[in-house]
Simulated scan of single mutants.
Amino acid sequence: MSYTGDVTKGGPADVREVPGLTISKIEVGDWGNNAYLLRCAKTGDGLLIDAAAEPDRLLGLIGGTPISAIVTTHQHADHWMALEDVARATGAQVIAHPLDAPELPVPVTREVGHGDRITVGVVTLDVIHLRGHTPGSIALLYQDGHLFTGDSLFPGGVGNTQKDPARFEQLYTDVVERIFDRLPDETWVYPGHGRDTTLGAERPSLPEWKARGW
């Protein structure tokens, strides 16, 4: 079966193999949160993006092969409700942006900012700081082709900025300058909730997003 990115609560993970990396997507919790397990194809080392909920299911997804890190994309509780349990069970380092780190339920062992890199086995992920949804929201980019956006970019628009014009302008500007102006249309977007998309599918709608202000 080919990867679609369509997952459901209680359902199986959707898994895809890309050069150097295996990506597993699963839906957990009551708010349709996505969690992503990334594994280096060469070493088997793993990284979990957003230990959102249902620690037993996340630990089942991880299985018996250790992970070295858990990245939390931002401070909202629906993205870290399983963090304490998963971090304790795996011993993985906890990674987040310093502006959101104080809101997490466990100490952050590594703070990362825009332009930093996170290593998974022999592959690296680039950290992109996207300000607006929260002060310290981050996305992770793999090889300019796979972008994990948390709640900063979805099919149909940027993340929720609570109708604050300044926050919307900041997030829209960051998404345009740091993502759309830099990356090709083929880049696959893995959001914090719901279905995946591509930059090419979303790019024509940028003027509409700006005009409506959300």
Score class of each variant (00 low, 15 high):
residue 83 L to D: 01
residue 54 E to H: 03
residue 57 R to G: 02
residue 29 G to S: 05
residue 19 P to L: 02
residue 70 I to P: 12
residue 63 G to M: 05
residue 44 G to D: 08
residue 69 A to I: 01
residue 30 D to S: 13
residue 57 R to H: 01
residue 50 D to L: 03
residue 47 L to M: 15
residue 20 G to M: 08
residue 57 R to S: 12
residue 45 D to G: 03
residue 16 R to P: 00
residue 48 L to M: 12
residue 54 E to V: 05
residue 73 T to K: 05
residue 59 L to S: 06
residue 39 R to P: 15
residue 74 H to Y: 04
residue 38 L to F: 15
residue 70 I to Q: 12
residue 84 E to A: 15
residue 40 C to Y: 10
residue 67 I to S: 11
residue 25 K to H: 03
residue 49 I to W: 14
residue 41 A to D: 14
residue 64 G to E: 14
residue 36 Y to A: 09
residue 81 M to W: 03
residue 29 G to C: 09
residue 30 D to N: 09
residue 78 D to K: 05
residue 75 Q to D: 10
residue 29 G to R: 06
residue 45 D to P: 00
residue 47 L to G: 06
residue 46 G to C: 07
residue 51 A to Q: 11
residue 74 H to K: 03
residue 34 N to R: 12
residue 17 E to A: 11
residue 82 A to I: 07
residue 49 I to H: 10
residue 83 L to K: 07
residue 59 L to W: 11
residue 49 I to R: 02
residue 34 N to E: 11
residue 19 P to D: 12
residue 40 C to I: 01
residue 67 I to H: 07
residue 72 T to R: 05
residue 53 A to T: 01
residue 60 G to I: 07
residue 33 N to M: 14
residue 18 V to H: 06
residue 76 H to K: 04
residue 17 E to F: 00
residue 26 I to G: 02
residue 16 R to N: 00
residue 23 I to L: 15
residue 58 L to F: 07
residue 53 A to C: 06
residue 39 R to V: 10
residue 55 P to L: 00
residue 51 A to P: 15
residue 32 G to T: 08
residue 54 E to D: 15
residue 19 P to R: 02
